[in-house]
Computed example of a mutant assay.
Amino acid sequence: MPLCYILPVANQSNNRPVLRFAPSPTGHLHLGHALSAFENERWAAATGGRLLLRIEDIDTTRCRPEFVAALLEDLAWLDLSFEPWPRRQSEHFDLYREALDRLAGMGLLYRSYASRTEIAAAIDRADHPRDPGITRDPDGTPLYPRAALAAADDPAKRGPTEPFAFRLDMTAALAKAAVLVPPLFWREQASPQEAGFEAIPAAPERWGDVVLARKEFPASYHLAVVVDDALQGITHVVRGRDLYHATGLHRLLQTLLGLPEPIYHHHGLILGPDGEKLSKSARSTSLRVLRADGVTPAQIRGMAGIV
């Protein structure tokens, strides 16, 4: 069944708010994950909403079954309850492909064949000391220098088996969105007790021509998350402040695909001794280690600032 027919039905939830906690099983959960799970629990309780669990395992090279089992065990230990059954992204690749095909049908995607080495070289040339200040996205990554890589991305010069990425043509996408719903913004709600919200102007152009899929991966996080939120009828997205700027890009994709717009709340982050957010890549202390050290679920709530 086409995606556009599924979405309106899936978004009906008897007028109850629907929230989700969506960890990625690329490692063990840490205190920052616990904070986000507790915040979703708090919002669901305060609004009388439903709480869903989503396993964001679209990266089949880094996500492992043992991490899925471990996160389920950790969440049970924290006494967090979710509606059955968890949604697994790895079981819905066809839906992401359908969304990708819709964007392609609107002429909003192009194939990027340039390798990391070619991209780095083009960025170095553009960021020469005589012409400094190449534009970077909110995460600090240089924007894709499409004009400088036009020759490298010419399909006629590439073999049929060469790897590529599907990138969003941001200029075309913004023009399309401006026709659909100008101006583009998202609704940020400060707390579950407040009825009002702040309209935050979206600035998806800050991300440039983002990758939405690769030859070996059916969808990026950005594409998969908006499709999943729509299909699960998510009404409130409660997540960390580190994804604040990504919301502008997500609103763009929702607009282009005709998907429902959730309300957003971006909670604060737990920072490590170095002042950076906790992360699996930085090997932040996991909940499993804390549990082995005798820390209780109640103490975890206190460490996460949940009272």
Rank of each mutant, 00 (worst) to 15 (best):
M1P: 10
L3N: 08
I6M: 13
Q12T: 13
S13K: 13
N15T: 00
L19M: 05
L29R: 05
L35W: 07
S36I: 10
A37V: 05
F38Y: 06
E39Y: 12
E41M: 14
R42A: 12
A45V: 15
A46I: 05
T47R: 15
G49A: 01
R50Q: 14
L52S: 01
T60F: 06
R62I: 04
C63S: 13
R64C: 07
P65M: 12
P65R: 05
L72M: 15
L75D: 00
L75N: 01
L78M: 01
D79E: 14
D79K: 11
S81N: 06
P86V: 05
R88M: 06
Q89G: 13
E91Y: 09
F93P: 08
L95Y: 13
Y96M: 02
R102I: 14
A104K: 12
M106T: 11
G107S: 11
Y110A: 06
Y110H: 03
Y110C: 07
R116P: 05
R116G: 08
E118I: 00
A120M: 11
I123Q: 12
I123E: 11
D127V: 06
P129E: 10
D131G: 13
G133Y: 04
G133M: 06
I134P: 11
T135F: 08
T141D: 05
P142F: 01
P142S: 09
P142N: 14
P145I: 04
P145M: 07
R146G: 07
A147R: 15
A151V: 15
P160R: 03
P163F: 04
F164N: 02
F164M: 08
D169F: 08
D169E: 13
A172K: 12
A173M: 02
K176E: 14
L180S: 10
V181M: 09
P182Q: 06
A190E: 10
S191E: 05
Q193V: 04
A195H: 14
F197K: 04
E198T: 14
A199E: 15
P204K: 00
E205H: 11
E205K: 11
G208K: 00
V211S: 02
V211H: 03
R214D: 00
R214M: 02
K215N: 10
S220V: 03
Y221F: 00
A224C: 05
D228W: 01
D228S: 01
D229C: 02
Q232E: 07
G233D: 03
I234G: 03
V238K: 00
R239C: 09
D242G: 12
A246S: 12
T247L: 10
Q254F: 02
L256Q: 08
L256E: 13
G258L: 08
E261N: 12
H265I: 01
G268M: 04
L269N: 05
L271Y: 03
E276F: 11
K277H: 01
S281R: 15
S286T: 08
G294H: 03
Q299I: 07
Q299P: 09
I300K: 09
A304Y: 04
V307C: 12
